[in-house]
Design a protein around this nucleic acid. Structure first.
Lengths: 222, 222
DNA sequence: GAATATTTCTGCACCTGGTATACATTTGCC
DNA sequence: GGCAAATGTATACCAGGTGCAGAAATATTC
């Protein structure tokens, strides 16, 4: 009954939506997120401000709606894992594959366009904050995936989820910031993989090894 | 030269600041965060809107400035731990102590005033988002503490920090939401302690045990 | 294919958070 | 008491976002 077949109405809606989004991103990339008002975006997209807000509930959504898929990515990976594989392995393998393929969600993609977008986001605190909210969504989705497929009780699932998401995010964030500061993806490649291995090993084996003062794997003598 | 001795100026400043904050919190508690404009707060505090913003850079700060100390609490606990104790143990012990003492940062404080504040925050998405940013600050501070006191390399410190903060937060959040939904702190007490033990054990031992399909501690047979 | 119902778009007025400017007041200090 | 620096105020303004009433476009029914 709803959007089964395109239909002229649906078609125009989709067209308008992408028009607004593209106009917005172009302006934001050129002048910076905070330097462009939504009124100007609306004008560029030849739409009224009111209509713009009908499509995108807030200014930040003009940017982040593109990344919305990634919110549930981890959950999907966990759900789709081959049986017999534990969730953590599935996530790790997926991340390493992402690194090899320069998947943007690993932070290791330095195509100029991706890089510009990244810098634009990092320059706008509101956008960074909005990205943070993605973490919460990812945590929720992953919690459910773990609860459903790993036979873990609610709390365990949730705790595992927040840990995995936090580490995953930290890795991607680290890569992204390095690239944004000029490092090349090729140069970063090996380091990123090693870091990821290290990170997932830590996640798997726990923080037991993290230093009681003067007792770590490489202790200071004080 | 600056705030060494109170001095009339400093004194008035502090007085104004608390006056604004108290007026704000009272109004927010009574009518809800989003139902009260900053103009109304300024009026109630007998200050101009501009002055209000001189003291609190954003509306949310009128509420969250009180919680600002907790941002570095984990880092402080880690830094202040007795030598020979590993950071994770220090954090766990501190959390368990917090539970016993109903320290609000564990989420297990149901004094009516705390509860009202909590509900008010949970009802205002902007405030929740603002709290999220505390996590980022806590992560940064804890990263440094671990780097400095646990002889961990930067990345390891960061990874451990984000895991610890995530779990810590999840525990507190869980407690807080239960209380906000009517559970009593006394009733929640034991469960909270058990959950915390479980959570820190997981953190310590890693996610190795979390279910490859059909292989967990309590496997489903599908 | 015309009439009608429904959805979408628009223009406008309006609210709120936050800032710039220019001026008045207070405080610290001599 | 008098002067410089710091604070406070009033006012006007900007930008994000919403409510509303009606115009325009699309879907539907006969």
């Amino acid at each position: 009954m709803n959007a089964n077949r395109p239909g002229l109405r649906e078609l125009k809606k989709r067209r308008t939506r992408t028009a607004i989004s593209e106009a917005a991103i172009e302006l934001f990339l050129d002048h910076g997120f905070n330097q462009v008002s939504v009124a100007r975006v609306a004008e560029a997209a030849e739409v009224s401000k009111r209509t713009l807000f009908a499509y995108f509930p807030a200014k930040e959504d003009l940017v982040v709606h593109r990344l919305a898929d990634h919110e549930t990515e981890l959950a999907r990976v966990v759900r789709a894992r081959p049986s017999g594989t534990d969730p953590l392995t599935a996530v790790r393998d997926n991340f390493l594959r992402g690194l090899r393929e320069r998947d943007p969600f690993t932070g290791l993609n330095d195509h100029p366009q991706t890089l510009r977008l990244l810098r634009m986001i990092l320059d706008a605190p509101q956008l960074v904050a909005r990205m943070e909210r993605f973490k919460a969504g990812a945590e929720r989705a992953l919690t459910e995936a773990l609860r459903d497929t790993a036979d873990a009780p609610e709390l365990t699932a949730r705790l595992a989820a927040v840990q995995i998401v936090a580490v995953h995010w930290a890795l991607a964030d680290d890569n992204a910031r390095r690239l944004a500061h000029g490092e090349s993806a090729d140069a970063r490649r090996e380091g990123a993989a090693a870091d990821a291995e290290h990170a997932f090993a830590l996640l798997e084996n726990g923080l037991r090894t993290i230093g009681s003062t003067g007792q770590g794997h490489r202790s200071t003598t004080r």
